[in-house]
Every structure is written in structure tokens, then in C-alpha cells.
């Protein structure tokens, strides 16, 4: 295994980790990297804060099927006003 972790790799692992997709080994490498790299520490902190903010349960989206319904209604209206 490569011991030294480059910053861009560390960022990639950090991104993955936000979605809980990093492997155990990757997490170890990330944490070792964070010990000595201040820039990546900052990035990691911001990244996890962003995750926390976005995962807030009040943030909701419209589902794709509901969007389709809206699109259809809009399209019908468009057609009828054009004709």
C-alpha cells in the first residue's frame, strides 16, 4: 500500500466519506493525512458541515413523478393557449 496520501486523493476520500462510501483503509489514510495537512483539515470540516446542513430534515424536494405531473399540466395549458 502506498503510504503517502496526496491532497487530491484525500479530498476524494473525504467526498466519498460524506456519503459513507469510503472503505476502512481509505478512512485510515484520510485521517493520517489530516494530521499533518492543514488545508485538507479545513476542507474536511467545511465538507462535513455542508453535509449536516443539507441532511437537515426540513430540506425537501419534489419527487420526479410529481414534477412530471406539474410539467404535464403546464404543457396542456401552453397548448390550449397557443391554439
Amino acid at each position: 500500500m502506498k503510504l503517502k496520501t496526496e491532497c487530491h486523493e484525500a479530498n476524494h476520500i473525504c467526498d466519498k466519506n460524506q456519503y459513507k462510501e469510503a472503505t476502512f483503509m481509505e478512512k485510515v489514510r484520510l485521517n493520517i493525512h489530516l494530521i499533518y495537512c492543514r488545508a485538507c483539515r479545513k476542507y474536511s470540516m467545511r465538507n462535513s458541515k455542508l453535509t449536516k446542513a443539507v441532511n437537515n430534515p426540513t430540506v425537501q424536494t419534489v419527487s420526479t413523478s410529481e414534477k412530471e405531473v406539474m410539467k404535464q399540466r403546464l404543457q396542456e395549458q401552453l397548448n390550449s393557449s397557443n391554439s
Partner: peptide
């Protein structure tokens, strides 16, 4: 995909940093 996610996350973080992060 991960490159896109990374760019989006960086942009989002700097956009929201002032008030929220």
C-alpha cells in the same frame, strides 16, 4: 461523477459559508 460532486460541494460550501457553515 466524483469530480462533479467535488466541484459542486466546493461551490456550495463557499456559497453558504458566510451565513451557514
Amino acid at each position: 461523477f466524483w469530480v462533479i460532486i467535488h466541484r459542486a460541494r466546493t461551490a456550495m460550501a463557499s456559497c453558504m459559508e458566510k451565513d451557514w457553515l
